[in-house]
């Protein structure tokens, strides 16, 4: 009997966790980035409370994704986290700031207090999205690794135009996703404002996305070769564009939930595009491709991957069950009550 390849299973599972993170924390980072575009205190509170019960759980996807990467591919975890030292420290500070801003903001009535935490929330969300994108961009483009798989580049080298464009694309993607989420959660005047943003954000995102793909073909030569060998990737990209274009249609018909699902699917398809093209690499080395970390030389032992698979088989269904029930309990339009933020 052929045993399933545990390394491939864990490549997929780590991918699922980070996709879950992008899909879920993506919308609350997006809501954060949009926070300063509404002026009224009541509207800003609506923004905060629309994500109030769920942002915390969404961030757990990042923590668990990081933990799973550590457990399944410790070499990749160590290389990326020590190599991206300063960007990750900035990411952590941004995530801290936005998390406590949500908690602190509405505790006091003073205008300056709320303004300060609104800016912290918004800037924290924006910088987080940007840095996640920049990190992702560098992974796609490849980073210099030495023979021991240690990062051999510099901080400024990480801020290359290609990765910055990926950062901006991520900000726009999350902002679009957040705006669509808000159409499900708001009503009346605020819904009109938010609905007005959606088509524009979709336009910005698609423009950036096309630009990024073009840039990829120029900047990252191996992508074209891989895609030639794996033509089905084209289908995924095409489906991705179609599903994004479906979003304004759903909004127009007043089906905000379908619009949101489309946006989630778009995220899944984008991650799938990446995963299918990148396989079997974990961290691509450029220019010395031979020093790359793959799902085999970066992995834990088969024994640990097996143990972790059992943990995942027990844990993931539970996680999905209570994530789904929490979203179900808090479904529908957000209302402000005494226990709100």
């Amino acid at each position: 009997m052929m045993l399933p390849d545990l390394n491939i299973i864990w490549y997929i599972l780590v991918g699922v966790l980070f996709t879950g993170y992008a899909m879920l924390d993506g919308f609350d980072l997006g809501v954060g980035a949009l926070q300063l575009f509404v002026r009224k205190d009541e509207h800003r509170r609506m923004f905060l409370n629309s994500i109030g019960p769920v942002w915390d759980g969404n961030e757990v996807w990042l923590v668990t994704g990081g933990g799973a990467l550590f457990a399944a591919f410790p070499q990749a975890y160590a290389t990326v986290f020590s190599g991206f030292y300063l960007p990750f420290m900035l990411l952590l500070c941004s995530l801290i700031f936005r998390a406590v801003a949500i908690e602190f903001r509405s505790k006091e009535d003073w205008t300056w207090w709320r303004q300060f935490w609104d800016v912290a929330f918004s800037a924290g969300s924006l910088v987080s999205s940007l840095l996640i994108g920049v990190a992702m961009g560098n992974i796609v483009r490849g980073i210099p690794l030495d023979a021991d798989h240690e990062f051999a580049g510099t901080f400024l080298g990480l801020l290359n135009p290609y990765s910055l464009l990926m950062g901006i694309t991520t900000v726009l993607l999350f902002a679009m996703h957040g705006a669509i989420y808000l159409t499900m959660k708001t009503e009346g005047e605020l819904l009109e404002i938010v609905s007005g943003w959606v088509p524009r954000l979709i336009g910005f995102f698609l423009a950036s996305y096309f630009l990024f793909n073009l840039y990829t073909l120029v900047e990252v030569p191996w992508v074209l070769e891989t895609v030639r060998a794996r033509p089905y990737v084209f289908l995924v990209v095409a489906a991705n564009v179609l599903i994004v274009l479906n979003i304004p249609r759903e909004i127009h018909k007043g089906r905000e939930f379908h619009a949101f699902l489309s946006s989630c699917t778009a995220m899944v398809l984008m991650m799938a595009t990446f995963g299918l093209t990148y396989f079997p690499n974990m961290v691509l080395s450029s220019p010395e491709i031979a020093n790359s970390l793959t799902i085999y030389n970066a992995a834990s032992t088969q024994k640990t991957l097996g143990i972790m698979l059992i943990i995942a088989l027990i844990g993931v269904p539970l996680v999905l069950a209570y994530t789904a029930s929490i979203y179900w309990v808090f479904r529908g339009k957000t209302t402000l009550t005494k226990s709100s933020y």
């Binding site: 019960p53 915390d56 759980g57 933990g67 410790p74 943990i311 309990v329």
Partner: peptide, 28 residues
Amino acid sequence: GDIFGSALAAEGIFAFFLESGFLALLLF
């Protein structure tokens, strides 16, 4: 990583999701 990582991953998948999920119900 082969040893220590699994404890951290188990913490995330078993404990943090449980806490953060039901926290929403506790608070709101």
